[in-house]
């Protein structure tokens, strides 16, 4: 199958195969991404993150439905954690999205984190590009806001929404500390529960403390996602943020920043692979380790020597 041609022709099967290729690091993945790259950069990317069970998928479902009403096509990448014990995962985000699953204008893909910390954000970014080239107007990335790598993923989004729920207790402080600064919007979901006011005030206080340097003040919306309540205000906030980004030119700087981060990570990854092949997997290297163990040499000088050699090659 010609995946590139298929993706550009809006073949759903080709899009699915393309994502698999990048996810599994198939040899053809690089070629596919090279060919698709000129066709990317068109979609608007929305990151949704927050603690487990906050209602991210439910909210994603309702937002997607609203985008469809407005004539936009939607791609969804839902990331769930891989079990560290078995390497397997249960990817259950689709349960909340079954009523949009048959919509021709919606493409949903679940991805597991697979424990590859740095690699994950690259793979998600590539999956996003496949859906971008495939023609999705809006791409929503859902991740559980717990780890750094998940935070890295949503950082590549144009707009990032943090979903919180009232009544999570003190442990929410830890989560909030990590993801508060990446939120362009905040949504208090499960607003049918007690503690909404308290959480609202907490978020406001944290935002004030963090000292906003830009012209954007993150709005805090309240939703009952399971009842579709408040979803329209969230949409308004997303649109307002998109408008702000465009008018302030921040969209350009943000995307430039994201491209820069991605490129540097790619170079670093290639250097890492190169070093593994040309340095770490050689007899010479084993010898060096032995000599280090005997304290005949020191790692600081050796590391510099090896780097010099690689650069001269």
């Amino acid at each position: 199958m010609d995946i590139v041609k298929g993706v550009l022709d809006r073949s759903r099967l080709a899009a699915a195969k393309g994502i698999t290729a990048v996810e599994n690091e198939y040899p053809e993945a690089t070629g596919i991404m090279q060919a698709l790259y000129p066709h990317t950069g068109r979609a608007y990317i929305l990151g949704i993150t927050g603690p487990p069970g906050a209602g991210k998928s439910t909210l994603t479902d309702k937002l997607a439905k609203e985008y469809r009403k407005r004539g936009k096509t939607v791609g969804i990448i839902a990331v769930d954690p891989t079990s560290p014990y078995s390497g397997g995962a249960i990817l259950g985000d689709r349960i909340r999205m079954m009523d949009i699953a048959m919509d021709e204008g919606v493409f949903i893909r679940s991805m597991a984190t697979r424990g590859s910390l740095g690699g994950l954000s690259q793979k998600t970014a590539d999956a996003v590009k496949v859906l971008d080239a495939f023609g999705c107007d809006i791409i929503i990335i859902e991740t559980v806001g717990v780890g750094q790598s998940e935070v890295d993923i949503v950082k590549t989004a144009d707009t990032t929404m943090v979903v919180l729920v009232p009544g999570l207790g003190d442990d929410i402080q830890a989560i909030k500390a990590g993801i508060l600064e990446i939120g362009d919007l905040f949504t208090i979901n499960k607003a049918d529960r007690e503690g909404v006011e308290k959480l609202h005030i907490e978020i406001e206080m944290m935002l004030e403390l963090s000292g906003n340097k830009t012209g954007w003040k993150p709005p805090i919306n309240r939703t009952i996602a399971s009842e579709s309540e408040g979803v329209l205000s969230v949409m308004d906030s997303i649109e307002a943020h998109a408008k702000y980004l465009k008018e302030s030119d921040e969209l350009k700087t943000r995307r430039a920043e994201s491209i820069k981060t991605e490129l540097l990570a790619m170079i670093a990854e290639r250097i890492r692979r190169h070093i593994n092949k040309t340095v770490a997997e050689t007899r010479d290297f084993e010898n060096t380790i032995l000599r280090l163990q005997q304290r005949e040499i020191d790692p600081y000088s050796i590391a510099d020597d090896i780097l010099d050699k690689i650069i001269k090659q």
Binding site: T82, S83, G88, A89, I90, L91, R94
Partner: peptide, 15 residues
């Protein structure tokens, strides 16, 4: 679904 996850598979669960 859980057994398959524990066997190292990625399980898409749809309800």
């Amino acid at each position: 679904a859980r057994a398959l996850r524990d066997a190292g598979f990625e399980v898409i669960y749809t309800g």
